[in-house]
Design a binder for these strands. Sequence first.
DNA 1: TTAAAATCGGATAATTTTGTCCGATTTTTT
DNA 2: AAAAAATCGGACAAAATTATCCGATTTTAA
Lengths: 141, 141
Amino acid sequence: MFSKACEYAIKAMVFIQYKSQQNETTNLSEIAEAIDSPAAFTAKILQQLRKSDLLESIMGVKGGFRILENKQISLKEIIITIDGNGIFSHCVLGLKACSAANPCPMHHKYAIVRQEMERIMQKTFLVDLANQLILKKISLK
Amino acid sequence: MFSKACEYAIKAMVFIQYKSQQNETTNLSEIAEAIDSPAAFTAKILQQLRKSDLLESIMGVKGGFRILENKQISLKEIIITIDGNGIFSHCVLGLKACSAANPCPMHHKYAIVRQEMERIMQKTFLVDLANQLILKKISLK
DNA sequence: TTAAAATCGGATAATTTTGTCCGATTTTTT
DNA sequence: AAAAAATCGGACAAAATTATCCGATTTTAA
C-alpha cells in the first residue's frame, strides 16, 4: 500500500505530535526507538518532512523535532510528501491513459475504494491519532 | 497499491480470458504486445500463474496460454498468487502486532477501505472484465 | 573555549523488484 | 528427420527502495 518510508513517516509524525502536545521536542534516537525504525533512514525521511514544512527541526544539543501548535496536519499531506499522490490518482492497473473517458477494466469498480481512501486520509489528523496514543489505546511498534 | 508484476498479471489474465472465450490460445508475444509489458518478465509471471493453476500452457509450435472454460477466476485469486494476501490482511502502517485487540492508530478507520477492497476483488471475475473488452468499453494499454 | 549532543547532507551499501538473456525442451510442420 | 515456433527454467543485470556511515555544522553547557 504505502512505501516503508511512508509508514515510518506517519508513525514518526504521530509520535512527534504526541510529544509536541506535551510541549516537548523529541530527537531522532527517541523517535526511532518509539516507532521501531532504523534511525539513519528515519533521519532522511524527517528531512523530507521538514523541507515540506510539516515539522520543525532544532539543531545542536537539546535539539530535535517538533510540530508547531497551530498546525493541523492530515495523513494525506504526509502521504503525498513521501509517496506522491499516485495512490490517490493513478490507475489500479498502472495504465497511464486510464481515465473516466478511457477506463481500464477496473476503473469504475475501484473508484469507490480510492475515494474512500482519500476521504479517510484527508480527514484524519495527527492530533486525533496522538490523542489515541495518550489514552494508550494504540501502539506504534 | 499492487506490484508491477501483479498489474501485469491481471492485465494478462484479462486478455487471455478474452481470447479463451473466443476459443483461441494466445502466446507470450501477443500477450506482451496487447498489454504493453516486457515479454520476458511477463513470461515469469505467467509461470507463477500456471503453477497456481490459474491458467494452462501449451508447449511447442502453436502453443501458448489459455484459461479453461469452466474456470471462474476472481481478481483476488490473482492478487494473492502474485502479491500474497498482505494487501487484504496487513496493517496499513506495517505493524506486525496490529490487530483489533491491539490496534495501530489507523486500524479502525482503515478497516472499511480494506474490507471494500477485498469485497470488490473477490466478486470481480475475469469474465466480467473480458466482456468489457469485447464491447471495446475498456483498454489494457 | 572546549567538549558533547544533536541535525544536515552526501556517499555508499544491501536488498528487493523489475527486467533480460540464453540454452533446454516440447510440439508442429515440412 | 529436420527445422521452426513455442514454453520452461536458471542465471544474470538494471533499477528502485531501504538502510548505513561519516564528516560538517550548529547549539548548549561545562
